[in-house]
Design a protein around this nucleic acid. Structure first.
Lengths: 205, 205
DNA sequence: TTGGATACAATCGTACATGTATGTATAACG
DNA sequence: CGTTATACATACATGTACGATTGTATCCAA
């Protein structure tokens, strides 16, 4: 095989990542062999080992590829909705997560891999710790939004911003989990919107 | 090796299940070899293959061993608290789940295996479907309790029993998930009790 | 008491998955 | 325009998990 252009090499790298996501999703991380990923990508194991150290390295690459934009979008929504109605901002942010998961199959696949197709043990425990960190960050962001809502009298009196933020994180975690657990891809139905709306409405003054 | 008594055989079977739970928990399901389980149990692979068809069969046995009592206890609590204050019954039921997880290490290990140390693909997908079924059953039970609360004017007006039940399921799912995600075993702190209390208080009239 | 049936232990062959080492043609660079 | 690093493909050696088979000592039942 001849040497490729830098651009071509970068493309094969992305092909490998896409193939890895697909095979991880269908076979699970542990049963996925680099040989199968290579076949799916139309290359040989040599190419995979050239671009990535081992399977773990590839797994991290798949993760970095899809989750970062989703988390960033949540933060934006939360921040720019801070001035008018923080609670509405939170509701929009929650809803947006599911609309993204509905519209972006690769993002949904990545999430399903992380939740249902990976065993968090040994060298994969750092991923779990990072997820923990993301949840803590989200809790802090939500706490700030709830506090701003409280300052404007929008939050139901007697509620602790920190506590309601924690509960929202748990609600979101469980909802995403159950959203992805179904056999066929879930959809953002009116009932689902009502569920999120109710979660916020319960906290509104 | 000589033949054992029926009682002795049953004991080795339990030893194998306990060993499997331990090794599953530390290595993850896929990296667990029947040889390691056998060593942990103090027997050979021959004994494991005698009592169980394969690793999947053993996995199911581990699951059946610990989750059934926990689910049953939840149902009992929900039912016998139905007469006086259904909302208090739900709160007790939720709290009980975490106290059980705190006090029963084997139950916590089993839950951690199911959530973080297993890849739900191919022959393991039935387990995921069964978890879905359990969540749906719980949602129905909760819906009944919320409806009884509504009939007695204890539920906040304007709330749909089905919707609040769904949200409680998601809250519980996420809370259990995050409860188990931490590096060291979590504890039922006053803050945790306050969180559950808040979840119910938000729904009380 | 005696012939299975039981409850394992020990052994074997097979099948892969991994990592590495090597080959090689070409793009990039000075 | 020659050299060198690149971007892979190919081949090889190693380890290891699995399933099946076989052996065997004992319990249980008739």
């Amino acid at each position: 095989m001849a040497r490729k252009t830098k651009a071509e090499a970068e493309q094969t790298r992305r092909q490998i990542i896409d193939a890895a996501r697909k095979v991880f999703h269908t076979l699970g991380v542990s049963r996925t062999t680099l040989e199968k990923i290579a076949q799916e990508a139309g290359v040989t194991r040599g190419a995979v080992y050239w671009h990535f150290k081992d399977k773990q390295d590839l797994f991290f690459a798949v993760r970095e590829h899809a989750t970062l934009p989703l988390v960033d979008q949540v933060d934006e929504r939360l921040l720019d909705a801070g001035q008018a109605d923080p609670l509405a901002g939170i509701e929009q942010a929650l809803l947006r997560i599911f609309t993204v998961l509905e519209g972006d199959p690769s993002a949904r696949e990545t999430f399903e891999i992380m939740i249902f197709r990976c065993e968090y043990v040994a060298e994969f425990t750092p991923v779990l710790e990072r997820i923990n960190g993301s949840c803590d960050d989200l809790a802090i962001k939500l706490q700030g939004a709830y506090r701003r809502a409280a300052e404007r009298g929008l939050l139901r009196p007697g509620l602790d911003p920190a506590l309601v933020a924690q509960e929202t994180v748990y609600f979101l975690t469980g909802a995403v989990d159950r959203w992805l657990a179904g056999p066929e891809p879930a959809r953002v139905t009116p009932a689902w919107r009502a569920l999120i709306a109710q979660h916020i409405a319960l906290r509104r003054a």
